[in-house]
Design a binder for these strands. Sequence first.
DNA 1: CGAACAATTGATCCTCATCAAACCTTGTGG
DNA 2: CCACAAGGTTTGATGAGGATCAATTGTTCG
Lengths: 233, 233
Amino acid sequence: MKLNPADLRRVSVFNDATDDDLELFAEKGTLRTMEEGEFFFFQGDPTSHMYVLVSGRAKLVQSSPTGQQVILRTINEWQTFGALGVVRPNATYPVTAQALIASAALAIESELMKAMLPTRPYLNLGLMQIMTNHITEMQERFREMATERVERRIARTVLRLASQIGKRVAEDKPFVELPLSRQEIAEAAGASIFTVSRALAEWERQGVIEAGRERVVIKNPHKLLQISEGAEE
Amino acid sequence: MKLNPADLRRVSVFNDATDDDLELFAEKGTLRTMEEGEFFFFQGDPTSHMYVLVSGRAKLVQSSPTGQQVILRTINEWQTFGALGVVRPNATYPVTAQALIASAALAIESELMKAMLPTRPYLNLGLMQIMTNHITEMQERFREMATERVERRIARTVLRLASQIGKRVAEDKPFVELPLSRQEIAEAAGASIFTVSRALAEWERQGVIEAGRERVVIKNPHKLLQISEGAEE
DNA sequence: CGAACAATTGATCCTCATCAAACCTTGTGG
DNA sequence: CCACAAGGTTTGATGAGGATCAATTGTTCG
């Protein structure tokens, strides 16, 4: 399989790259393909590469010493992950990256990226932009987790996941489909799968969503947003 | 009051700055002094400046629409805050920065920083390093909040706050003092002040800490670490 | 068709927030 | 120097929100 360098411009970090640089990334990078459930890297591995997801879908999970997991982020096509190693070459990944479906990612050596930084302002700016995005997102999620009750958190989580990895169910319909199990929604929302199941069942009764096996279809995002903001009774 | 440019080298972002740059920051920046409880900026303000705390102590808090607060970070001398604006000039602060005690901070215009980035690799690297630190810290705190129960979270919070803003109670003693109210510890741990009060009372009974009004002295950090990791009985 | 696994549903229990009231500490003014 | 006010802290009683557990019901796939 061959990667078209021009496609790399869809990556936000590479928006302002020169054509030469894009070719360099495409050439020096190696394409890694994964089956569903396989791992790009594990929490604790040395941060050897930065990844660009070329196709498929992935998730970043963090495990506690006791084995409990939370989903920190989901990755869609042309999004980057594992970028920490660019800045801290001798560090280890703080998360595990796992393919949600069959996927392919371009792996670029951290050392290469790091060597390019001093002469590429656009790369620095691009990396800092996604970093600040992650910081503000994590701060918000932390506050939610600390102050909001489960149902709202689940609603927000479903909406956020939908914006990150949701697909239109059909071109002409506004419904958005989310290919995630209850377990995964629970790990992203910080709830038990039972509570997630009950919340989804209730929303389905109200016609807000349609729930299936490893699948959620959002039929009324507006109502879901209301729920996430506390319009309840 | 005059700021010595050489002191700025204690700021991690400026570690590798030239002497000229340090002087530039000291000269172009304005020193803002705050009484206890005053605000450097509010959540929602435009990100006009990056700050370096020169003296005192501050906290970054985020408020929910309903007014509930969480403490995201505490700032000690020579630490930076409000650095997001450097990368996103037209954004607004996602947090509020408030002085915990009488403090002074050097305010450097975001625009100035941004203009310097393309020709200063050290600045880019320095900023990215603190950003990755924040990301990994927030990811861990999020996981803790999602998976761990209160007492452990409070223990971890007290330890983390101690490492960030703790002071030795005396040069020759290992005890670390933390000048925070129960309310503030609660907001940092994502707990109620009642639960915090009970936990501290219990630990004081065990000789792990010494609790006072707006004050906690850690006498046995090792034991506290054990509690935070779940050694309980 | 049956095995494996996801999801549901109900019953139970436990953690922790909430509320109320008392207590302690610090600072202020007479 | 004492009295009082203000605000931080403690403590107990209560209750609710969710987690946990167990059993059942789908759903998918070989």
